[in-house]
Amino acid sequence: MSEAPPKIRIRGLSKAFGTKVVLDRLDLDVPAGKGFVVIGGSGSGKSVLIKCILGLIEPDAGTIEIDGRNVLAMRRSEREAVNARIGMLFQQGALFDSLPVWENVAFGLLARKMMRRPEAKPRAVEILAQVGLGPDVADLYPSELSGGMQKRVALARAIAARPDLIFFDEPTTGLDPIMGAIIDALIVAQVERLGATAFSITHDMASAQRIGDEIAMIHKGKIIWQGPADRIYDSGNPYVDQFVRGKSEGPITMEVRV
């Protein structure tokens, strides 16, 4: 679809937990420098997919290439170098609740020795400003913030080390529609500023339209459709159609047992 080599190329990726097959020989190309969104129902394996790419879950089979290099075959030090160029916004934020906001934001900078503590705090305050938070929140703890503010802090932490590939796991889930739109706008702005590739997963169609240039749908462990975001409502694929229109009737049957 795209002329440039893909940022991420996944082939034959499989992962099962016990007898439950979550990813089933999944293939996926993620174009570089764009907003890419994977949609799919709850429990369809979207988070597992991201965790496999990040190396947090070891897949049973398959290859994952980032910038043309298979990350699953890398030595630990190489893998760490690749991961240092990646940012991740977790579904629930995953802020460290034992650390104040500024240390959360600066955590990657300090861990990678990109700066020392005295410089890190003013830098964290700058990054917080980019996501619309004032300097007064820097010394608060995550538990003292509202859900929307926590998402902003998590976003600040994800972009702090200027990654060129950023993952967003359901960035708007749990937020009201207005806050969701604000977070999406921040994501688009920051991704553009960094010139990064954004890989998001969501089941929120409004959000998918705002942050996605290209959309893929995951169902039963496979990518069943992939195309430009503006084609999502006339994909011609009955599964996609049912999902994006939120119809209860259609080829997708909800499995009650998980």
Binding site: I86, G87, M88, F90, A94, F107, A111, R112, R157
Partner: peptide, 20 residues
Amino acid sequence: AELGTMRVTDQIDALTTLST
């Protein structure tokens, strides 16, 4: 309790993604 909470809220995974 502390590590368990960090595990189920993905904070342990977050450490890994932050090169720790």
